[in-house]
Design a protein around this nucleic acid. Structure first.
Lengths: 230, 230
DNA sequence: CGCCCTTCGATTGTCTAACAAGTACACATG
DNA sequence: CATGTGTACTTGTTAGACAATCGAAGGGCG
């Protein structure tokens, strides 16, 4: 298998590019995306741009009402709590299940090694391997629905992350150590303990996000900063 | 609030109609839906029909690859296990949470009353209040993400149901009694017991579905019956 | 006679152009 | 100041068209 080729449609390609631009922070919360703008900037027809936008709306990354311009969703503290609670629901059950068969997924081990390796560099770099750690745990149970649901949450989590410029809030070493401990608990068959530690792990991250969002910027900060360049 | 007015777009209206036709069994598993067919039968333009189809694909009710006609998804025993496991993950955590505050949602009580009331009539009639019972429990925690995820599962559950013509497999009285017991356990604050009973409740339903699907018809039965009218 | 290749119909992906309908904001009016 | 009007911008929907692709039918060849 020599690097599986994938012919993505134009709609998918544009959606993917917009998504990565949202995750990179280039398109911040509240940023508006009109169909014509997207169409002209990618040099495609408006229906194509429209379809891309609707794809991201379905993913929960964009928000829009009928006859209104789409905009990058603005997540408030309440949304963060919802998202992290949903994560905890899914992931703690997954940990219990993995512990029952003492199945430590290799991909998760590798992801955590990657986190340990990058202790220098930009703080944003920890996001990708961190997400990969958690998703590989989820994927390990081989339940397509659960993986799909978790992935939609991951998208929103990343949206939270870019809202917080000051990502030095995240203690890379602590994250890595807790991941390691979770893996060890799975291997020891102690599912309940693993789930409990995960709850702490996610709970701490959530509270830091909420505190940072509440203290530094309200949910409408993105829209406000959008007014300046005009 | 006098009956909130909602102006649905044509795309949404068609998607809703197709969805109900799928749930009613009129469009069985494997049934093909070409864009032109949908467009002409609803007398709309093809792009409109296309958008409706893509909406249902995103919901997981239809399945299609690039350049291939959409068809109603065919769920095998493995999918049923995945779906019911995912349901159990979400719902058991929700029960624990509701029990913590001893919060018995009125909507769930009403739904179970409705089940008790219809002990006569067609076996399909139990599906709607049964689903309503479970979704009102989920909605009671007020977490938009979890509600959204559960709703996508409910769609697939209903898809399972219509595959099983012989719904007399379902014992209405038993369902109603177990629901009642779950509500009582929530009120008593015994979350773990409620979650355990729910696991049994869902597990039994799942095993009956799997047995019925495996014994009566394989995953490709829908496609086979599709050949006959030709 | 069976298999491979070509061809063709059907279907989807995408585009252009256009009109209808709705929203938002500025403006004028009372 | 509140209200209504109007205009510009944006989206919803349609029509028709062409290219690309898939699936199957048919013909040529071993």
């Amino acid at each position: 298998m020599a690097g599986r080729i994938t012919a993505v449609s134009i709609v998918d390609a544009i959606a993917a590019d917009l998504r990565s631009r949202i995750f990179s922070g280039e398109l911040g919360s509240g940023h508006t995306l009109t169909e014509t703008d997207v169409a002209s900037s990618y040099e495609v027809a408006r229906p194509t741009a429209k379809a891309s936008i609707e794809k991201l709306v379905a993913e929960g990354l964009l928000d829009r009402g009928t006859h209104k311009t789409a905009r990058v969703v603005e997540l408030g503290p309440d949304s963060v709590r919802d998202i992290y609670l949903a994560r905890a629901y899914l992931e703690s059950e997954v940990l219990r299940r993995l512990a029952r068969t003492r199945d430590v997924p290799e991909a998760a081990v590798q992801a955590n090694r990657d986190i340990a390796a990058l202790q220098t560099g930009a703080p944003l770099d920890v996001i990708e391997p961190d997400m990969r750690f958690h998703t590989s745990l989820i994927d390990a149970v081989g339940n397509e629905r659960i993986s799909r649901m978790y992935r939609s949450l991951v998208g929103e989590v990343r949206l939270c992350m870019v809202r917080i410029q000051s990502l030095h809030l995240l203690d890379t070493a602590l994250i890595q150590a807790e991941h390691q401990k979770i893996l060890e608990l799975i291997e020891a068959g102690r599912g309940d303990a693993a789930a409990e530690l995960l709850d702490e792990h996610l709970g701490r991250a959530r509270e830091r996000l909420v505190a940072a969002m509440g203290g530094i910027a309200g949910p409408e900060a993105g829209a406000r900063s959008e007014l300046l360049p005009e």
